[in-house]
Design a protein around this nucleic acid. Sequence first.
DNA 1: CTGAAAGCGCTTACAG
DNA 2: CTGAAAGCGCTTACAG
Lengths: 306, 306
Amino acid sequence: MGISAVVIKKVQDVAKRLKYRPNMIATSLRTGKTRSIGLIVENISNPFFSVLAKVIEEEIMKFGYRVFYCSTYNDDERSAELVQSLLQANVDGFIITPTEKLDKSIEQLLEMKVPVVLIDRYFPGLDVSHVVMDNYEGAYSATMFLIKRGRRKIALINNNSGMVQMQLREKGYSDAMKKANLFDEQMILHLDYHSSEEQKIEEMLLFFKNNNSADGVLFLANYMGLAGILAIRKLGLKVPDDLAIISFDDHYSFILHSPSITVVEQPLDEIAKKTVELLMCQMKSDNNVVFEKVLLKGKLVVRESV
Amino acid sequence: MGISAVVIKKVQDVAKRLKYRPNMIATSLRTGKTRSIGLIVENISNPFFSVLAKVIEEEIMKFGYRVFYCSTYNDDERSAELVQSLLQANVDGFIITPTEKLDKSIEQLLEMKVPVVLIDRYFPGLDVSHVVMDNYEGAYSATMFLIKRGRRKIALINNNSGMVQMQLREKGYSDAMKKANLFDEQMILHLDYHSSEEQKIEEMLLFFKNNNSADGVLFLANYMGLAGILAIRKLGLKVPDDLAIISFDDHYSFILHSPSITVVEQPLDEIAKKTVELLMCQMKSDNNVVFEKVLLKGKLVVRESV
DNA sequence: CTGAAAGCGCTTACAG
DNA sequence: CTGAAAGCGCTTACAG
């Protein structure tokens, strides 16, 4: 450094006096970097995603990055548009909970060498970094837990999204049930993801009426569990005496509910931290990126509903 | 237009073929506009704010604007930093739920002629557009409702934030109680905003033990109501027989709770739409901005807890 | 009317 | 080592 400390101090003082702030836009135009990342989640109103978003933001702020959030509402078209829109905003990287047909957009990002990490779900055929919970194990353990507690007719409530994380959860349930010789396809219900909560409740009312011998139920996502509780209440079933309940993904209402609801809790902190770590790693090394696929264990939080 | 339709078509075709997308960064640098606004809320994890954010985003997207969300967590220092950070990102306007001492930052924005609209709360001394619910009226009506239902010893649970919207709610309660000759300062509890939920529950347990004749309670925000329900459950009080409950701001858990909780619901849609309208108005007319102060009516949603 | 040039505020390769 | 110039990709005032 050929600049004397005195001069440095002088310049800094003037900068401070004039309240000089570098113009981020100009810096971005020149460097091609925006120090921002795009975070595409399913629905920022769902606490699962808002808490995830919060931790991701805190983590990435440590590296001086800003976050653009957006929600797909599981709409493929909207999701593809969001990717394009964030691309146009020149984000330096992506964190995405993809929708079912978003593989084309993800492939485009890979071709463009844009750093990207998928969370919560992924595409089995696509070579791209992702961080997800061990959904199979979570569902298997939860189902086994119900079986060990003496439940025999355990229902499964899934959606019809077809995304791999939901399929794995369903497979975890099915394998546990088959192992105990309790599997019965009739006990599985697939709700239409895009139907209203009222419609979901209706579907479940009908389902439980047709399967009135059910003594346990596993909900594969918190919004299904919440709607399910309302359906079960309408049927006048006693929890856990008549019916034991476990739901995926924790939610404030599950704690407040009486009886409180047992859940398969996702390790949100771990997921967020690992995701940011993988993304930062990709953003630092401009090429020869190694894809990393991370599987984290969930945790069964036992409450009064089982 | 001196350009023939044929040439226009040709150029557009080439643009499409080459997948030309204007570089937003360059456009921003040249025009000084980013077509983005900063949305500073208290806590994006609270459904009240996440739903508000969602509607605001949908509204402002119609005008081709993007939203930067951030949460203050009611921290004055963090809030001031967020304003500076968004300023540096050259957002074209601000929508802010201010913290108690954010008036300095707001004044700075006004001096810089940056469009800004406050929501949910405001500064009585500051001439700046805002959109808020009629908090006084909401609390007054809710309290009157409890009184008309025969409740006499109605407790009030507020926080100690000192923000005007909370003071107005408290005043609405006090005036209603005084009018009915039921006012008793002992029935008011101020929780520390920054304490944990457990601490809030502890404070409330103690409070209700000291005021065991209470037959009604008004919670001035949803997170206090949620903690309050847990405290009331620990005390073994029957709702609404022993104690009638009304809380401000709706929440999924209030609907799911058994008995379901009566709330003073804020007109989120209206608030969001009006806010965007005011902001767009300011952003269009570069000068002589007229400040508008909008007061919207809340709605008492009567459920089983009263 | 049209097309070329200037300039937004930075960073960095390069000439001296 | 240092300082001036080029250039990121646009928009718009201006010369022709």
